[in-house]
Amino acid sequence: TTIEWNGTKITVDNPQKAKELAKKIAKKLGLTVKVHGNTITIE
């Protein structure tokens, strides 16, 4: 699972952990999480 935001890509083996990490990042930055299959985008 890949997390993408602002040109940065982070690959996380565990999809559940990836989703939790994305939510934490999005919350800190005041952004939203969008899931597209194996890609999680923070916008």
Rank of each mutant, 00 (worst) to 15 (best):
Thr1Pro: 08
Thr1Asp: 06
Thr1Gln: 07
Thr1Met: 14
Thr1Leu: 11
Thr1Gly: 08
Thr1Lys: 07
Thr1Asn: 08
Thr2Cys: 14
Thr2Glu: 12
Thr2Gln: 07
Thr2Ser: 06
Thr2Arg: 05
Thr2Gly: 06
Thr2Ile: 14
Thr2Val: 13
Thr2Lys: 11
Ile3Pro: 13
Ile3Ala: 05
Ile3Glu: 09
Ile3Ser: 05
Ile3Thr: 06
Ile3Asp: 10
Ile3Tyr: 01
Ile3Asn: 09
Ile3Gly: 09
Ile3Cys: 13
Ile3Arg: 04
Ile3Trp: 01
Ile3Gln: 06
Ile3Met: 03
Glu4Arg: 06
Glu4Lys: 05
Glu4His: 11
Glu4Phe: 09
Glu4Ile: 14
Glu4Val: 06
Glu4Tyr: 09
Glu4Met: 07
Trp5Lys: 10
Trp5Gly: 08
Trp5Gln: 08
Trp5His: 11
Trp5Asp: 07
Trp5Leu: 15
Trp5Glu: 07
Trp5Asn: 08
Trp5Ile: 15
Trp5Thr: 09
Trp5Ala: 08
Trp5Cys: 15
Trp5Arg: 10
Asn6Val: 08
Asn6Gln: 13
Asn6Tyr: 14
Asn6Gly: 15
Asn6Glu: 14
Gly7Glu: 12
Gly7Lys: 04
Gly7Leu: 03
Gly7Ser: 06
Gly7His: 06
Gly7Gln: 06
Gly7Tyr: 07
Gly7Ala: 04
Gly7Asn: 07
Gly7Trp: 06
Gly7Pro: 10
Thr8Asn: 14
Thr8Lys: 11
Thr8Phe: 12
Thr8Val: 15
Thr8Tyr: 12
Thr8Leu: 14
Thr8Gly: 14
Thr8Asp: 10
Thr8Arg: 10
Thr8Trp: 12
Thr8Ser: 10
Lys9Phe: 13
Lys9Asn: 08
Lys9Ile: 15
Lys9Trp: 11
Lys9Met: 14
Lys9Tyr: 12
Lys9Ser: 14
Lys9Val: 15
Lys9Arg: 10
Lys9Gly: 04
Ile10Trp: 05
Ile10Arg: 01
Ile10Lys: 01
Ile10Phe: 04
Ile10Met: 05
Ile10Cys: 14
Ile10Asn: 00
Ile10Asp: 00
Thr11Cys: 15
Thr11Ser: 08
Thr11Glu: 07
Thr11Arg: 10
Thr11Pro: 03
Thr11Phe: 15
Thr11Tyr: 15
Thr11Val: 15
Thr11Gln: 09
Val12Arg: 01
Val12Asp: 00
Val12Ser: 02
Val12Thr: 04
Val12Trp: 02
Val12Asn: 01
Val12Ala: 04
Val12Pro: 01
Val12Phe: 12
Asp13Pro: 10
Asp13Lys: 14
Asp13Gln: 14
Asp13Ala: 14
Asp13Trp: 12
Asp13Thr: 12
Asp13Ser: 14
Asp13His: 12
Asp13Ile: 11
Asp13Phe: 11
Asp13Met: 14
Asp13Gly: 11
Asn14Val: 04
Asn14Leu: 05
Asn14Thr: 12
Asn14Tyr: 04
Asn14Gly: 06
Asn14His: 06
Asn14Asp: 14
Asn14Pro: 06
Asn14Ser: 13
Asn14Trp: 06
Asn14Lys: 03
Pro15His: 14
Pro15Ile: 11
Pro15Lys: 09
Pro15Trp: 10
Pro15Glu: 08
Pro15Asn: 08
Pro15Val: 09
Pro15Ser: 05
Pro15Thr: 05
Pro15Phe: 15
Gln16Leu: 11
Gln16Met: 10
Gln16Pro: 02
Gln16Arg: 13
Gln16Gly: 09
Gln16Lys: 14
Gln16Ala: 11
Gln16Tyr: 09
Gln16Phe: 10
Gln16His: 10
Gln16Asp: 11
Gln16Ile: 12
Lys17Pro: 01
Lys17Phe: 11
Lys17Glu: 09
Lys17Cys: 15
Lys17Gly: 04
Lys17Val: 12
Lys17Trp: 12
Ala18Trp: 04
Ala18Pro: 01
Ala18Asp: 00
Ala18Tyr: 03
Ala18Cys: 06
Ala18Met: 03
Ala18Thr: 02
Ala18Val: 04
Ala18Leu: 05
Ala18His: 01
Ala18Ile: 05
Lys19Tyr: 15
Lys19Thr: 08
Lys19Ala: 12
Lys19Ser: 07
Lys19Glu: 11
Lys19Val: 14
Lys19Cys: 15
Lys19Met: 15
Lys19Arg: 13
Lys19Pro: 01
Lys19His: 13
Lys19Leu: 15
Lys19Trp: 13
Lys19Asn: 08
Glu20Thr: 09
Glu20Gln: 13
Glu20His: 09
Glu20Ser: 11
Glu20Phe: 06
Glu20Leu: 12
Glu20Cys: 05
Glu20Met: 11
Glu20Asp: 09
Glu20Trp: 10
Glu20Gly: 05
Glu20Pro: 01
Glu20Tyr: 08
Glu20Ala: 14
Leu21Arg: 02
Leu21Ala: 02
Leu21Ile: 12
Leu21Gly: 01
Leu21Glu: 02
Leu21Val: 06
Leu21Trp: 09
Leu21Cys: 13
Leu21Met: 08
Leu21Asp: 01
Ala22Lys: 01
Ala22Met: 03
Ala22Leu: 05
Ala22Gln: 01
Ala22Tyr: 02
Ala22Ser: 02
Ala22Gly: 03
Ala22Phe: 03
Ala22Cys: 02
Ala22Thr: 01
Ala22Asn: 00
Lys23Met: 13
Lys23Ala: 13
Lys23Ile: 12
Lys23Asp: 14
Lys23Ser: 11
Lys23Gln: 13
Lys23Tyr: 09
Lys23Val: 12
Lys23Glu: 15
Lys24Cys: 15
Lys24Tyr: 11
Lys24Trp: 13
Lys24Thr: 08
Lys24Phe: 09
Lys24Gln: 10
Lys24Pro: 00
Ile25Thr: 01
Ile25Gly: 00
Ile25Gln: 00
Ile25Val: 03
Ile25Cys: 10
Ile25Trp: 04
Ala26Asp: 02
Ala26Cys: 07
Ala26Gln: 05
Ala26Gly: 07
Ala26Pro: 01
Ala26Leu: 05
Ala26Val: 04
Ala26Phe: 04
Ala26Ile: 05
Lys27Glu: 14
Lys27Gly: 10
Lys27His: 10
Lys27Tyr: 03
Lys27Ala: 11
Lys27Gln: 12
Lys27Pro: 02
Lys27Ser: 10
Lys28Val: 11
Lys28Asn: 10
Lys28Thr: 07
Lys28Trp: 14
Lys28Gln: 11
Leu29Met: 09
Leu29Thr: 14
Leu29Val: 06
Leu29His: 14
Leu29Ala: 08
Leu29Lys: 08
Leu29Phe: 11
Leu29Asp: 04
Leu29Asn: 08
Leu29Arg: 07
Leu29Trp: 07
Gly30His: 07
Gly30Asn: 06
Gly30Ser: 02
Gly30Thr: 01
Gly30Met: 02
Gly30Glu: 03
Gly30Pro: 02
Gly30Ala: 03
Gly30Val: 01
Gly30Gln: 04
Gly30Asp: 04
Gly30Phe: 02
Leu31Met: 13
Leu31Lys: 05
Leu31Arg: 06
Leu31Asn: 03
Leu31Thr: 06
Leu31Phe: 07
Leu31Gln: 05
Leu31Pro: 02
Leu31Cys: 11
Thr32Ile: 13
Thr32Glu: 09
Thr32Val: 14
Thr32Phe: 03
Thr32Gly: 05
Thr32Tyr: 03
Val33Ile: 13
Val33Leu: 06
Val33His: 01
Val33Glu: 01
Val33Arg: 00
Val33Pro: 02
Val33Met: 07
Val33Asn: 00
Lys34Leu: 07
Lys34Asp: 03
Lys34His: 13
Lys34Tyr: 05
Lys34Gly: 03
Lys34Val: 14
Lys34Thr: 14
Lys34Ala: 08
Lys34Trp: 03
Lys34Cys: 13
Val35Thr: 06
Val35Asn: 03
Val35Trp: 06
Val35Gly: 02
Val35Lys: 03
Val35Pro: 02
Val35Arg: 04
Val35Tyr: 09
Val35Leu: 08
Val35Ser: 04
His36Val: 14
His36Asn: 14
His36Arg: 11
His36Leu: 10
His36Ile: 12
His36Ser: 13
Gly37Val: 03
Gly37Asp: 06
Gly37Tyr: 03
Gly37Asn: 07
Gly37Arg: 03
Gly37Glu: 06
Gly37Thr: 03
Gly37Trp: 03
Gly37Ile: 03
Asn38Ile: 04
Asn38Trp: 02
Asn38Lys: 08
Asn38Thr: 08
Asn38Met: 06
Asn38Pro: 04
Asn38His: 07
Asn38Glu: 04
Asn38Asp: 07
Asn38Arg: 08
Thr39Phe: 06
Thr39Met: 09
Thr39His: 09
Thr39Tyr: 07
Thr39Gly: 03
Thr39Ser: 08
Thr39Cys: 09
Thr39Val: 14
Ile40Tyr: 01
Ile40Asp: 00
Ile40Gly: 00
Ile40Glu: 00
Ile40Val: 06
Ile40His: 00
Ile40Asn: 00
Ile40Cys: 01
Ile40Ala: 01
Ile40Arg: 00
Ile40Pro: 00
Thr41Asp: 02
Thr41Cys: 08
Thr41Pro: 00
Thr41Lys: 10
Thr41Val: 13
Thr41Phe: 14
Thr41Asn: 04
Thr41Met: 11
Thr41Leu: 14
Ile42His: 00
Ile42Trp: 02
Ile42Arg: 00
Ile42Lys: 00
Ile42Ala: 01
Ile42Ser: 00
Glu43Arg: 08
Glu43Ile: 13
Glu43His: 10
Glu43Leu: 13
Glu43Tyr: 11
Glu43Pro: 05
Glu43Asp: 08
Glu43Trp: 08
Glu43Phe: 12
Glu43Gly: 12
Glu43Val: 14
Glu43Ala: 11
